[in-house]
Nucleic acid binder design. Structure first.
Lengths: 173, 173
DNA sequence: ACTTTTGTTCATTTTTTATTGAACAAAATG
DNA sequence: CATTTTGTTCAATAAAAAATGAACAAAAGT
């Protein structure tokens, strides 16, 4: 089992509780990797997920043993897909972050940022495919390729429809 | 733009048609990478997608310049998710393969093989999380962690429900 | 039973992807 | 406006994933 390196060197810290937090962070990491995000992103989200108080970039960097670069980039990804909220704290210069835990927000952000562009791009590419002249190819082959082209178009169409449907499904309880 | 190396050194071959096949193979490759499959798998599927006749392993190997190993493993993946059918040809020792192009079959195979196990595993892991004793932790922190645990459980539940729903959505035209 | 054909496995190598950390920019403070 | 704090970028490096190919198994033919 993977273990996120959160330094256990801070508050009076309950042993049992720390273990559960560890497990939850591991779960977050797992989910994150599952959907194709890098380890550092999963670690960042996991740590914020178990943190009651907002955390700053350098807290994240030091507690997770990540480089500044990885932390900055990881937070950017999380911000882009809407998996974290930025919290402004009075009299503080740093930005503070908290996990967004609403599933439909998480999923719709992920779909919009990571899935939709791909599906749209696919649509463009398919629509620029052009068939060869009717009489320059054997009829059987031409019909076959026409059929394949229709397949591609219908795949794209169905997938494009599925994305908002999925989003909706997860929004309605 | 990526280009799959299908040797253009065979039949009398119509120029225009070959270009379209190339484009279609590229689209297949793109889709395959998009869902996290390796390049070789996308190439194999793409080539079968544009092939009217079933192809044998060595035809795939030589036409796509893949190693025997990659071809064997790639076909295994495609077989497992149900993206190809094996065709037996009378008097032939080799196995021959054709692309499955029915979207709902493709998607349900993919979901069953690649998504469901992950979601199920997540369910198991979540159900083994246990809370610390009521009185060994500050109440606020305990409530917070309880809330997170419920979040995780509800995510898992909703996701598990979404998988068959998605499958169904794509089956019904 | 031996030989050949077909297909798989897996240790090594290659390629791809993620991380690091130092240089850079941006913004707030005094 | 110089200085410090905060955050980003990107070339170099490290880590992870995929491909290779030779050794191995399995099955068919003779």
């Amino acid at each position: 089992m993977q273990t996120v390196a959160k330094d256990i060197t801070e508050p009076p810290a309950n042993q049992e509780l720390a273990a559960i937090e560890q497990d939850m962070m591991d779960l977050c990491l797992r989910i994150s990797k599952f959907i194709g995000l890098p380890k550092s992103v999963g670690e960042l989200y996991g740590f914020l997920f178990v943190s009651q108080e907002p955390k700053s970039m350098d807290e994240l960097t030091s507690q997770l043993n990540l480089s500044k670069g990885a932390t900055s980039q990881g937070l950017k990804v999380l911000r882009t897909i809407g998996a974290i909220k930025t919290v402004y704290i009075a009299g503080e210069r740093k930005d503070y972050f908290q996990a967004e835990t609403n599933l439909s927000k998480l999923v719709s952000g992920f779909l919009k940022d990571r899935i939709e562009p791909g599906v749209t791009d696919l649509g463009h590419r398919i629509s620029t495919l052009s068939l060869p002249d009717e009489d320059s190819v054997s009829n059987s082959k031409l019909e076959f390729i026409k059929g394949r082209m229709q397949k591609l178009a219908s795949w794209q169409q169905k997938t494009a429809d599925a994305v908002p449907a999925l989003s909706k499904f997860l929004t309605g309880s």
